[in-house]
Design a protein around this nucleic acid. Structure first.
Lengths: 217, 217, 217, 217
DNA sequence: GATGAATGAGTGTTCATTCAT
DNA sequence: TATGAATGAACACTCATTCAT
């Protein structure tokens, strides 16, 4: 009680807090990798931004690619964790589908680094993802939810039959991901800022309309 | 008669053919940039692959970024050119829409470098695209075609009303682009090769079903 | 009369005028070499400035160093030529000495490229000058003039005895050359523009006073 | 007692001695810059000669020009430091003037790199010197000494009146600097080695004679 | 555990020079 | 003679990585 709690100084200088150091490095790396990709990111800048130093990066993650892999794994984990929070069990199928799409859209909107990371990883033909046993074990809860919603909707007669859950999953993912993934080129081509909240709202409503329209019996 | 004097030496050394040299450089650059992005690509490798040498790259394109911009512009031009070949004027709206989606899907399938290039450009927040007056002038013919199809379809009573052509355009683009853009991570996650022709066919049919299903009145 | 005179177009494009081309190259080279030294000058820029092209430089002068040597030789020749115009035979010794110093000072003032060239050549420990038989044959007329003035002045009793003409020559050269050679650093250190006409005048008068004061019997 | 632990490893590899590394780089740079100028010097050679490596040059000095500026500053500092050691307060004016000229002459003789550096800097029109606040603050003690000598000499009746100290300073500088600055071209033109001690002695004596002759009342 | 100096292989860019036309 | 495209060696500068402290 009397003993003060351990310093939680985020700027942790010379304090031996492995976890904090690790976390700071990963945060900094996420920022840099998302902004510049694997090849474009600089270990020096990651070290500086982390408030730690280069040596620690090599101590904890082996090398730049090891750090990349770790950051990628963390990003997937985080997404899966959030997805697990989705609970549409008690919603009517249509409402559930709408909710799920909204969740997906908002996740993309709130996590642009994840979008960038995934694109960069695809540039490498998923070479690192393939190495990660961790990620492949992370089965998407969304797929389960979609399957459930489809079944209940079909049973209730509000969704058409013969819809492949995996295909629908990809479609929903596409409708969210693509917009944010390509938002800069699209904004330039169309000459308007598609990141503006209003534009995002329009886009989300349209996406939902597409899926629900398609699902009509 | 038979012996035409045409020089076919493409790998011509020390041959004064600026156009050929330029073209070879651009081809090599497209390959490298698509494979590794702007930061990851190596000027040395582009030079070697082009059969020319580094000096020529700087002669013609100023620097690496100048080359990147040119390659990006060329890619957009090529796409727009192909899009111009689309002619659905005499097709019934539903067939036209199907044809258009098929075209878009196949273009993505056949031009993975374009996909990579666009993703990389989005990593840079479209910094280069914004500089290019050229590209912004290239208005997509697809948008016009979609608008036309929607109108005719609505007039004929086969398409629902109240559909925004721009939103539909983005949706169609998303349904094609995302699949190929994320094909490696998706393939890894799902544990199957989504680039296989059969998978592509399934995906295309689903995408068409989504859009046409949505468009039903 | 009817026949028009040969084109004397200085910008000689595609006109076969070896002399003009050579001269333009040398002029351009003098400018570049004086501004940036041998290592800092660029063959490309010399070619462009000359209105001709690189190939001609190599045709006429072999290589960059050959051009440097030629430019250096020309600069010396020009100086010696001007020196030959000095005629103090009919002037009283004191007036003659004053005239000679004035000439030397003004030459340095009017020919900053010559100053730069000589300094650069000294950086190379006169490696090129040593190769040039031409220059070593160009005996300075100034030395003769100084010797003559000294003799007459001593005979007339207006100059002291025991003055080595070569040493005096170097002293006079130093008093002119150094000022213009180091004018930029001196101006910076003293915080005033020593190239201003007024400053130059003061300097010249002082220099003359030093030499004539020294020469007093 | 005998075995002091002092590390004498100057060429120390992987030894964390920032000061030593810096100093080695500066020494190597002075050598290279003086021999070849800014444009002609090679960063690679400086790195090799320093016993360190290129990265350290950029770590400590930013770039080649930063190193040049530092070397230039150091050279000026060194000169000013030596000048501060001049003490003619107790010498008779004539002896003092002689001593001062001798000092100046010998400094030029012993520091040919300084001569080269200054000439190169003048080629750049003192662009770097102008940037350096450091150097401009280093006021030359010589000017003060000359002023003092002139006053005492005039009071004692051994020096003429109406002599501007700044002009005399430049004259004295010229008489020393020019000889060594142009020693290679002069040696070539005159066909004798002016760097030989005997020649230097003759030159110094002449220079002193000129100034003292001029200063006679 | 933590720091930052040190390293060498690269990385984009430039340059003097040559050659086909 | 004249042109400018082509070349490869070099150049200034950077980067991921290692090591002494």
């Amino acid at each position: 009680m009397a003993t003060t709690k351990k310093k939680t100084s985020t700027a942790a200088k010379r304090t031996r807090q492995p976890d904090v150091t690790r976390r700071n490095i990963v945060d900094a790396a996420l920022y840099e990798f998302a902004a510049k990709g694997l090849a474009g990111a600089r270990v020096d800048e990651i070290a500086e931004r982390s408030g730690s130093n280069k040596r620690m990066i090599y101590e904890y993650f082996g090398n730049k690619e090891g750090l990349w892999l770790f950051v990628l794994e963390r990003a997937y984990e985080k997404m899966r964790e959030e997805e697990h929070a989705i609970d549409v069990a008690r919603m009517p199928p249509v409402d559930g589908m709408r909710y799920l799409m909204e969740f997906n859209f908002r996740f993309c909107s709130r996590n642009p680094e994840f979008i960038s990371l995934l694109n960069a990883e695809n540039l490498h033909k998923a070479a690192f993802l393939r190495k990660s046993k961790k990620i492949r074990q992370l089965y998407s809860p969304l797929l389960v939810v979609i399957t459930d919603l489809l079944e209940r909707g079909q049973r209730d007669g509000v969704f058409r039959r013969g819809v492949d859950p995996v295909e629908l999953y990809i479609t929903i993912a596409a409708l969210g991901f693509f917009y944010f993934s390509n938002v800069h080129t699209l904004s330039t081509i169309f000459g308007r800022n598609l990141l503006a909240p209003k534009q995002q709202k329009v886009r989300l409503e349209h996406s939902i309309a597409v899926v629900l329209g398609y699902l009509r019996p």
